[in-house]
Design a protein around this nucleic acid. Structure first.
Lengths: 151, 151
DNA sequence: ATCGATGCAAATGTTTTGCATCGAT
DNA sequence: ATCGATGCAAAACATTTGCATCGAT
């Protein structure tokens, strides 16, 4: 996959521009993010890396992801559930989440038309929009089955 | 001010509907929120209350604010800076927010058509939606002026 | 050789919880 | 009288930081 190389290259370019060092660990973090191809908790990524590289540290993953976000290649996602997620900033600007209030699973979905309309309205109110997040909370298909009559 | 009474009344109604108790502390929290009239950190509110009522506890403020949010009279704001803010939900049933990433001000706006469309799509994915939140982050008109060339 | 990066553990800061007591119903 | 609510301190939690060592430049 050449996308991995491309992202890694851009990250390394960012690093040297800032007089920071290209390290094995930083590359491992970028690789893992590209391979995952979806948003993830910091800790999830840490465990994933840990499995293959026992000596990588928790702090390093945190530090690398923050750098990756600073470089603009990833972004921080905050769903208000206590921990930070990161996601590669791909082509598009999708931020639509379905969060299951029972099992916590996050499903992404897309609705470009809706987003455009929201952006237009925000603009009319004088806002310079940076990010757009649409968050729906409810029970996913699986958890609906398990709790037929919750509440 | 009669708005304070109105909010307090609605909150108490919510409490009794849930078979929860109306207490001095819960009323103090609501009062403080109405008086402040703006979003605030939990801890800021705690210190404010503490000044007049030395025996109110940290945990109680957290617990009361969460209840207030559950009742729909307030909402949680998460700017990703490590602590939670709360704000009274003025018009009640709005779910679209413009959050200024600089000053934290929250502006509500409405877009019923968009919401309906989102709910429909979520339903198609098998989700039983409980809450819907559309959050746009960016610079409000005021903060745009103050930082002409940020970054 | 320099000086930033790492891993670990300890520290931090916010939010939650256990528990004995208090107080609204 | 019951049983939820409170205050406190301790716990839990994700995240950050200090420091000795490692490694990219």
């Amino acid at each position: 996959m050449q996308m991995k190389q491309q992202v890694k290259e851009r990250f390394n370019h960012f690093l040297s521009r800032k007089h920071l060092k290209t390290t094995l660990q930083r590359n491992l973090v970028v690789d893992a993010m590209v391979e995952l191809g979806r948003h993830t908790h910091v800790d999830e990524l840490y465990l994933l890396l840990r499995a293959k590289h026992p000596y990588i540290g928790h702090a390093t993953v945190y530090r690398s992801l923050r750098l990756l976000a600073e470089s603009g290649l990833a972004r921080e996602i905050n769903l208000g559930d206590g921990f930070t997620r990161y996601e590669l900033a791909r082509q598009g600007e999708r931020h639509d989440y379905l969060v299951c209030s029972d099992c916590g699973t996050v499903t992404e979905f897309e609705n470009g038309a809706v987003e455009k309309e929201q952006l237009r309205r925000a603009h009319n109110l004088g806002f310079a929009i940076e990010t757009l997040k649409i968050e729906l909370k409810g029970l996913c298909r699986h958890c609906q089955g398990r709790h037929p009559n919750a509440n």
